[in-house]
Amino acid sequence: MSTVFIALQTNEDTRQIVDAILQDNPHAVANEQPAMVKIDAEGKLVVRRETIEELIGRPYDLQEMQIHMITMSGNLDQTDDEMTLFWNA
């Protein structure tokens, strides 16, 4: 299985988003690089709105992620509740 990844800027907004992603994806690994965090995961990575909301204590629209994203890899599917990155092969 190939690796998907998402990289986010390091800032106050993304601290909890990164925590939420790692919580929901136990197989994911966070790599801290200068000013950014790159999260790698085998095969699939799911970002869940509810988990982020629990951690930040307010309603969250997953499209807000647009502001902090640096790069990603994999096929993407986004709904109101989840953003999923995946490879089919």
């Binding site: 998402i6 800027q9 647009q66 902090h68 994203m69 640096i70 990603m72 890899s73």
Partner: peptide, 9 residues
Amino acid sequence: QSDEARHMT
């Protein structure tokens, strides 16, 4: 780069 993620997709 925050736009690039969208462009890549």
